[in-house]
């Protein structure tokens, strides 16, 4: 067992881990932050995306020990302390960007990273950036609409391809 320390959603945390403990296991089981989901556990689906030092990463494919000293943000860190949703979260709520909701934490984290890099993405850019996030309910159309809304843009009035 080794000691790991990091900042999670602005708070310093530490814990005892094994070398093989994945970051997502440390977040969920060590810290009780169960908003970060494990879908495929093979880095395909993106349900486990968190930000490490500001960049989106799949928490199922990094060991907790590799995040030692890092700044980690999870879905629990997205809303303001008073509960006000982030623009991306609000977009998902307003545009019905989820059905079962399992993929939503990862979608919100990836979409938030996109808007930081590219504040006014096109529909194509949104779809490409979400390539590593899989949703089996929505057909993606409302997710794209939600991300565009969060960027202050409206969905172009064309049928989905």
């Amino acid at each position: 067992m080794t000691q790991v320390s990091m900042t999670v959603n602005g708070q310093s945390v530490s814990g005892e881990i094994e070398g093989r403990t994945l970051l997502v296991e440390f977040l969920r089981e060590g810290l009780g932050l169960t908003g970060t989901h494990v879908g495929c556990d093979t880095s395909q689906c993106g349900a486990c995306v968190v930000h490490i030092d500001g960049a989106p990463v799949k928490a199922c494919s990094i060991f907790a020990a590799e995040a030692d000293g890092a700044e980690v943000t999870t879905i629990e860190g997205m809303a303001a302390p008073d509960g006000t949703l982030s623009p991306v979260q609000q977009g998902f709520r307003d545009h019905h960007g989820l059905q079962c909701g399992f993929c939503t934490p990862g979608m919100v984290m990836t979409a938030t990273a996109l808007l930081k890099e590219n504040p006014k993405p096109t529909v194509t850019e949104v779809r490409e950036y979400l390539e590593g996030n899989i949703c089996r309910c929505t057909g993606y159309h409302n997710i794209v609409k939600a991300v565009l809304a969060a960027s202050g843009q409206e969905m172009p009035a064309v049928a989905a391809e």
Binding site: S43, I52, P56, V57, K58, G132
Partner: peptide, 9 residues
């Protein structure tokens, strides 16, 4: 390569 999250690692 891969997707944005994979490219960050």
């Amino acid at each position: 390569i891969g997707d944005p999250a994979v490219r960050n690692r």
